[in-house]
Computed example of a mutant assay.
Amino acid sequence: MNLQGKRVLVTGGSSGIGFAIAEAMMVRGSQIVITGRRQDALNTAVERLRAAGGRIDSIAADVSTEKGRETTLKVALEKLGGLDILVNNAGGVRAGRLEDTTEAEIRAMIEVDLVAPILLTRAALPKLRASTGGLVVNITSGIALVAAPFYATYAGVKGGLAKFGESLRRELKGEGVHVMTVYPGATDTPMMSSSKAGPELGFTREPAAAVADAVIAGIEEDAFEVIRGGEARAKMIALNRQDPAALDKRFLDLKPALSEAVRDHSAL
């Protein structure tokens, strides 16, 4: 897909991966609307992007709520005049032992990481079908491919989003709308700022711009998926399929340090 002139909605676009994707698409001539819950963060993001000469607007809305999704799509369509690409990037995380995670935290992850992209995609499909070539990009996580301890709910919802995308891609095959799934690894974003897990625990962070560049390359190649993490991630995926007990043992050795490193990891 050529991104020139494409009309794009990016949820969670005020910072991190969402901002980097919006910026990369803008450079390639797309018209962008970003969403987020905080107006001040959106204002800063829009100012930065417009300073670079981009066509960018924003919507302050919470896509985890019905009203927020309705507002997001309504205003985006008004500003863009249609929709070619939906990037479901908004997300939240709360790490830690399952029994220490509150019901409110669990439900928040389910709503923003899984329910919101499913329902927003459903609402946007008529406009995406009307495009000359619609696209849905779902930002999941490497944890959806190899689940780490202390991220049970997050792995569950991100894995669910990945399978939602795979199923929908096949459902829409031949109907003018493609679906691409992205699996970022640890990324240097505000969402990761409260995590102390580093390379020694397998969390080597890359810049959000690197993830965005890979997403753009995937879009331009009409890829089914984009998996970050290189050879190390590929080996873990293979080991998880061939000998999951070996990976269980590796995580067992890391559990004490990992538990301490991620106990305060929260971005909801």
Results as ranks from 00 to 15, higher is better:
143 I>E: 14
37 R>Q: 05
58 S>Y: 09
263 R>T: 14
101 T>G: 06
41 A>I: 04
189 T>G: 03
213 D>F: 07
145 L>H: 13
181 T>I: 15
127 K>N: 15
3 L>A: 11
200 E>I: 11
168 L>H: 08
172 L>E: 06
21 I>V: 12
125 L>K: 04
186 A>K: 09
119 L>E: 04
205 R>P: 08
207 P>E: 08
53 G>E: 05
177 V>W: 08
253 D>W: 05
254 L>A: 12
142 G>F: 12
94 R>N: 06
36 G>N: 06
260 E>F: 01
243 D>V: 07
63 V>L: 02
120 L>D: 05
116 A>M: 04
47 E>F: 10
214 A>Q: 12
58 S>D: 10
70 E>T: 06
229 G>H: 00
61 A>I: 01
133 G>E: 15
156 G>E: 12
76 A>Y: 07
196 K>Y: 09
240 N>H: 02
60 A>M: 02
73 L>I: 06
22 A>C: 07
74 K>H: 11
18 G>Q: 01
4 Q>M: 13
21 I>H: 03
209 A>M: 09
7 R>V: 07
49 L>G: 04
164 F>P: 07
248 D>P: 02
19 F>V: 03
117 P>A: 06
83 L>A: 00
68 G>T: 02
146 V>Q: 11
151 Y>V: 14
194 S>Y: 08
141 S>D: 14
106 I>V: 13
260 E>T: 00
220 E>R: 03
235 K>V: 13
114 L>Y: 11
97 R>P: 08
175 E>Q: 15
12 G>P: 04
68 G>D: 07
265 H>L: 10
147 A>W: 14
189 T>S: 05
146 V>H: 09
